[in-house]
Design a binder for these strands. Structure first.
Length: 109
DNA sequence: TGAATGACGCGCC
DNA sequence: AGGCGCGCCATTC
């Protein structure tokens, strides 16, 4: 598999990999950075192949700070455990102080 | 080639 | 205020 759009995926991986420790970002933020705000879903889709790369997908959540993708991870609370391990408070798949740990690629990057 | 899906986001009822 | 549905872009069947 070698779609030209791989650039899109690669771009997502690039940004995700640059997420600082103890920080998180949203699919929409990445999509916006890529210039595809309307393709926020693609960002999440791209993360689908993040497994096996070096992309801390666990630091990427939806714009509400909800670990929507945790279901896609290893098992169940792995994603939450990882985030908490980084100092991020997570309760019931919901990131606490989301705006505080939020990392805006378009702004920071 | 056409249709359905999906780790989102925003709007509307 | 809360819940439901639609739209977008790319990938896959």
């Amino acid at each position: 598999m070698q779609p030209e759009t791989l650039n899109f995926f690669d771009k997502v991986y690039e940004v995700a990999k640059q997420i600082p420790y103890g920080r998180v970002t949203s699919y929409g933020a990445i999509a916006m950075y890529l210039g595809a705000v309307k393709s926020a879903r693609m960002v999440g889709y791209a993360m689908n192949g993040s497994v096996g790369k070096d992309v801390p997908a666990h630091r990427v959540v939806n714009r509400k700070g909800l670990l929507t993708g945790k279901h896609h991870f290893d098992g169940t609370n792995l994603m939450q455990q990882l985030l908490e391990s980084e100092g991020i408070k997570v309760v019931d798949n919901q990131i606490q102080d989301f705006e505080k740990v939020f990392w805006n690629p378009s702004k920071e990057l």
